[in-house]
């Protein structure tokens, strides 16, 4: 029997539902996560069928099932509710807190940067912060400079924070369940432009290990490490180059902090060539970090320079043609790949 196929966003909804079903201490807190919780005409026997469940609808249905005590609409006050989520996590709950767009972190960074990420360390190992921060990144939907950034690398530079970026529905469900099970602060960053992507997702409860990359496609000539949606760009490039007789290995990083050095180094040692694709701006991002570690630890295995393909050093533009030019795509990666594999191509 064929596996069930569901969308990336449905996989995330299902994982939150399963986690809340399994453990009463799991709560959902954020702006409109219930959606209209106090609106009289939406309350019918506490079912809330028409409560909209977040701007992307990812938590639709959960307030009806688990009640307003566990699916908590907050004012638009990102600092206030993130801070409350950290306080709740330190004292016995396991919150999932939603930052509607990662761009809004400017108002909400302190609870993550200075409180949640550091309490355990500062308090001599006595605190546990089982908090999952769900957020949304990425360009491609015409949302412009304040709703389209890719900031997971910024979170990833904070010690005490783990950052997960799923590229497909299967991983989204398994990584979300793993994140909620962890006694640590996890930022779970979703690319909104792949919410509709469908894939095989088992109905049962399962987890995908945090901190472990996956080799999506094996190959021997060139490694492409990619993050989130960029994994699909890597696969497109791989398909194109296979026709020219060049064999590409695609590594899906899945966790960007702490990222899986072992899998990446093993792959580069095999292929001798590396491209890293990251939709973040080009400096101080995950791609540059991967490149620097590989240059340090696998220099002798390299047959060419390490290349990164990132967004340019600009804000995300609005106009469709400019936004398209901003986002890394297969053509940009192919151009860069040419420099590395020109001698491998079959005539």
């Amino acid at each position: 029997m064929a596996e069930r196929k569901i969308s990336f966003m449905n996989a995330i909804t299902e994982s939150m539902d399963m986690a809340m079903e399994k453990d009463d201490r799991v709560i959902l807190i954020g702006t409109d996560v219930a959606g209209g919780a106090e609106v009289d005409h939406l309350i019918q026997d506490d079912v809330y069928e028409d409560a909209f469940g977040g701007v992307f609808g990812l938590s639709k249905g959960l307030v009806g099932k688990y009640g307003r005590e566990r699916v908590i609409d907050t004012p638009i006050a990102e600092h206030g509710y993130f801070s409350a989520a950290v306080g709740a996590a330190a004292t016995g709950l396991r919150p999932i807190s939603e930052l509607m767009f990662n761009d809004f972190i400017g108002f909400a960074l302190d609870p993550i940067l200075n409180q949640g990420a550091k309490m355990r360390y500062m308090f001599g190992g006595k605190a546990k912060i089982p908090l999952t921060v769900r957020t949304v990144h990425g360009a491609g939907v015409g949302a412009a400079a304040q709703h389209s950034q890719t900031l997971y690398g910024m979170f990833g530079s904070i010690p005490g924070v783990k950052v997960v970026v799923p590229s497909n529905p299967y991983d989204a469900k398994g990584l979300m369940l793993a994140a909620i099970e962890e006694d640590n602060l996890i930022v779970f960053s979703e690319d909104k432009s792949i919410y509709g992507m469908k894939g095989e997702v088992p109905e049962e409860y399962y987890t995908v290990e945090i901190g472990k990359a996956s080799v999506t496609k094996e190959g021997k000539d060139l490694t492409i490490v990619a993050i989130g949606k960029m994994v699909h760009v890597a696969l497109e490039v791989a398909e194109g180059l296979e026709k020219d007789g060049v064999s590409i290995e695609v590594v899906d990083l899945r966790t960007v902090a702490p990222w899986d050095e072992e899998t990446v180094l093993e792959s580069v040692k095999k292929t001798g060539r590396l491209i890293v694709i990251d939709e973040a701006n080009p400096h101080n991002n995950t791609a540059t970090d991967v490149a620097s570690v590989v240059a340090d630890k696998a220099f002798d295995y390299l047959d060419g320079p390490i290349k990164t393909v990132c967004a340019p050093d600009t804000p995300v533009p609005f106009a469709a043609n400019l936004e398209k030019a901003y986002i890394p795509d297969a053509n940009k990666v192919l151009k860069v790949a040419e420099e590395l594999i020109f001698d491998l191509k079959k005539e």
Partner: peptide
């Protein structure tokens, strides 16, 4: 402020 509110939420 928020941490205490969170502890109270627990």
């Amino acid at each position: 402020f928020g941490l205490a509110a969170g502890a109270a939420l627990s």
